[in-house]
């Protein structure tokens, strides 16, 4: 560990954990209804409560779990489901490379579990709180953030499997916009500070849109993210975090 002890800073383990949980609440708000919807769908697809909860515990990737449950319901073969999951989730490799590079200097025993907690949402939120990586006990912030998201997902999917549709359909459908709104709520303040961040995002959107016409959704997101990021090489200043 290379954390420095700075006199008088209030970044104790407890305050960092509290900050991490607070920061994770928007993710929780977005995850709970989607996890419940997943639980309902997976139950209908023929998974037991144990199986559908274990999928959330072990896979922990919303879109892939919806797809997996759907494919199981259709009787698709195991290999096909696993390959499709790999393609859909490969974007996490690029995200993890970005986040782990920010955590350079932090012990591997922290980096590995934190990397396993990366989703689209926890990655986005954690990255936009990149300053914590340099703070005292910053790893506790990230750990608390990721556990808040993870537990919301696992508990929500179990609840969905047990109780079925407890949220009225119009409301759960409306809540489908929650995570998109969260992504927007993360992006807009950065664009207000630095317009060039918006340029990176818009190029990634367009590339994703164009490629999604020709290749699997998973690859289109990866290509959009990678090429959008390459624009950053030209538009970002040195050491812009």
């Amino acid at each position: 560990m290379t954390t420095k002890v700075i006199e008088g800073t209030p970044s104790t383990k407890v305050t960092q954990i509290q900050r991490g949980i607070t920061t994770g609440i928007p993710i929780m708000l977005g995850y709970l209804p989607i996890a419940i919807a997943y639980g309902v769908l997976a139950k209908q697809a023929g998974l037991s409560i144990f199986e559908l909860t274990m999928m959330s515990v072990l896979v922990y990737a919303g879109a892939a779990q919806f797809m997996g449950a759907g494919m199981i319901a259709l009787g698709t073969g195991a290999i096909e489901i696993i390959v499709a999951t790999f393609v859909l989730n490969f974007r996490h490799f690029v995200m993890s490379l970005s986040f782990m590079n920010r955590l350079r200097g932090i012990d591997l025993k922290w980096k590995v579990p934190l990397s396993l907690g990366l989703t689209d949402e926890s990655f986005s939120v954690a990255s936009l709180h990149g300053d914590k990586a340099k703070q005292e006990n910053g790893t506790y912030f990230y750990a608390a953030l990721m556990l808040t998201a993870y537990l919301s997902w696992v508990i929500g999917s179990c609840v969905g499997g047990l109780l079925g549709d407890i949220i009225p359909e119009t409301l759960s459908q409306s809540m489908g916009v929650a995570l998109y709104a969260m992504f927007i709520g993360l992006l807009v303040p950065s664009v207000k500070k630095e317009v060039r961040m918006g340029l990176i995002a818009i190029i990634a959107m367009l590339i994703n849109y164009i490629f999604s016409q020709f290749v699997a959704q998973g690859w289109a997101i990866v290509i959009g993210t990678v090429i959008g990021g390459l624009v950053g090489i030209y538009v970002l200043k040195e050491e812009k975090v």
Binding site: I200, G224, L230, G232
Partner: peptide, 11 residues
């Protein structure tokens, strides 16, 4: 890699 979060948000 620093630009990736913004690109990912867009995509």
């Amino acid at each position: 890699l620093q630009a990736i979060p913004y690109a990912a948000l867009g995509a």
